[in-house]
Design a binder for these strands. Structure first.
Lengths: 248, 248
DNA sequence: GCAAAAGTGTTTAGAGTACACCCATGT
DNA sequence: ACATGGGTGTACTCTAAACACTTTTGC
């Protein structure tokens, strides 16, 4: 690497120049179709090269004056109208050659992707189908080959979702205001798999914790005894906040 | 935002231009001084503006052709010689105005920091004191005001370290090949605090899991009965890999 | 009445906790 | 011998897991 010289206080001697980056934000947006017990992820059809006409995670490049999180929310609001959602940063993928544009296009510009993970209520999330934009909820078990390294990002997001469910109350951000304990249980089983807990034990443990309050309202779903609607009490949950509590 | 026009397939109409980024990598490098029971973090004195002569996390800007992880390892190898280490990505901090250079310098270039978290063996980690570079292990309880948002990054890293210890075998990456159960216990107490577990219970639980093998070798540390040296058996640990096992 | 869904209770095995106590060494 | 740190065992509590059972609805 010797033989190159630069200005003294800008960069040390004999070192390759700094990379210039464009920064993208890609969102892994999950929702749970409680009716069909399926975990869904939002995919969009790319309208431009590279990977024209491939499915991909919804993403965008960060603009001037915009924070990473702003960009993540911007994508979300361009694709869906959702009242309640949970969003957090996932991981940053930034190896060279992860984006084909690096090779052809421009002068050594690198593309880096900061991925975000989001969870929205399926029933309230209204997809914004701007003219001829392919956009759809896909069952995570049936996602096709995606653009870039998006399959990898999705897998990472899925793992994070499972962990989050186990020790944080994200589920309540994504259920309606009032829900039955079975709704909650279904949500957990669709994300975590069938064998995570017996319903009656799940029920007992959760009720004992005391942050679910019975509204007294009953709903009937076809045959069978009507179920109570419960509400998540954020205040009663507060003591468990940020504790290593595993409540499932 | 209307009134601006661009080429049709490069950027959509009427939108502010993309931000250009330099990407930095900052490392939160921990080690545990088992002799004095202190958790240490590696800090360096900045040799240049901004924040000249302030302590900061060791960091660097990513160069052309270099992956993020490469950059993280490069910093590490410039500062310390360590045989064994654990490294993983932490979080990406990227709001505008997080770096003073954004305002003065250049043309709207943004500085984004991808932080990495590392754990090294204190005894084997040899600091590389290149001429007049301030570099030192600081007890995390006594770190001063740092440059940029590095105090925040450090706090984040500290939280991650505590979590990691509880459900993954990082401790063994940072202990010598052979160690006494007391060494291990001290490591946990210095990171997690005094009240996480009684020694004898800690001991019993860990031995029952069966991935620590007694080498039979005894070491004497002053007065008292000599302790057995144990070795971490990675194969025996394998079944617990990636499971939600909390073994402390 | 009977099936289906909701909700309650009981039994048991094992984990977590708090200790008390024995063991081997240096001085 | 006795202080010091290493190591073992026990008794008690609490939770997790499995599953049997009761209640309330639709048909």
């Amino acid at each position: 690497m010797p033989g190159r010289s630069q200005r003294k206080f800008v960069a040390p001697l004999n070192q390759p120049p700094l990379a210039d980056f464009k920064v993208g934000v890609d969102n892994v947006i999950f929702s749970v179709d409680t009716a069909q017990n399926r975990l869904l992820v939002l995919l969009v059809m790319r309208q431009q090269e590279p990977f024209l006409n491939h499915w991909s995670l919804p993403g965008t490049l960060v603009r001037q004056g915009e924070s990473l999180e702003d960009a993540a929310y911007r994508i979300l609001s361009e694709k869906i109208r959702a009242k309640n959602l949970y969003l957090e940063q996932l991981y940053t993928f930034g190896g060279p050659q992860r984006d084909p544009r690096e090779a052809s296009d421009s002068y050594g510009v690198r593309y880096l992707s900061v991925s975000y993970f989001a969870l929205v209520r399926f029933e309230e999330a209204e997809l914004i189908a701007d003219r001829m934009t392919g956009i759809a909820w896909y069952p995570v078990k049936q996602v096709p080959q995606l653009a870039f390294d998006h399959n990898e990002i999705l897998a990472y997001g899925h793992r994070r979702l499972r962990n989050k469910l186990e020790y944080s109350p994200v589920a309540f951000e994504v259920l309606p205001e009032m829900f039955t304990l079975n709704d909650l249980y279904q949500l957990y089983t669709t994300v975590l798999g069938e064998n995570f807990s017996d319903y009656s034990n799940f029920r007992a443990r959760l009720l004992k914790l005391g942050f679910l309050c019975d509204t007294g309202i009953k709903v009937s779903r076809g045959a069978g005894r009507p179920a109570s609607l419960y509400r998540f009490d954020a205040e009663a949950f507060a003591p468990f906040k940020d504790k290593p509590l595993v409540f499932i």
